[in-house]
Amino acid sequence: SHLLLTEPTPLAANQDDSTNDGSLRTLLTLCDLLNRELLVLIGWAKQIPGFSGLSLVDQMSLLQSGWMEALLVGVAWRSQGAPGDELVFAGNLRLDEAQCRATGLADLYEALRHLTAKYQAMNLSPEEVVTLKAMALANSDADPVDCPDSVQRFQDGLHEALQEYESSRREQHRAGRLLMSLPLLRQTADRAVQAFLRLHRHRCVPLHKLLLEMLDAKA
């Protein structure tokens, strides 16, 4: 219930108007949205029980490692049942396959639709979505870890909450199924990071400082 309460209100995209190039405009709009979502995500992380008790080094490691996974849980959740198999980055930023291809994000589109279909088939509840998002951050296999015991306790707390929630619904296999979906999320996030790094390096798409810093941490 704490995670449900601290779940941030979805952001709206601010349409970029610095260029006449339509696909570049879409990209710049998306990158601006991502940068603002990152800011919100960092504030959200601090509110997850146990996160602020971690050392600053470990907080940084977990975020640098798990930020894209946590953001993509939101995109995949919003994209469920979207008409035309669109990716719903924001209520006012929905990209279909053709738009993603035109902006150089065909690979990201395919990976994210796959993740969205997986979540849709699992019929996730809002409780499961917020827990999955927090677990993606906690389970990021960040290295080096400053205080492994504290990170472990942070992970255990989330795992316990998930198990308690699922046992209250008398769903004995759900917790395991959710955990088994984490590798696909990791894989999807890796492809997303590569896609944005490619855009930046090969097409010189300018990125905001925070987004660039977080992408660099993964490069």
Partner: peptide, 15 residues
């Protein structure tokens, strides 16, 4: 740490 100064600053801010 210098490389990740924005994240560092954001985490140090109280809210």
């Amino acid at each position: 740490k210098e490389k990740h100064k924005i994240l560092h600053q954001l985490l140090q801010n109280s809210t």
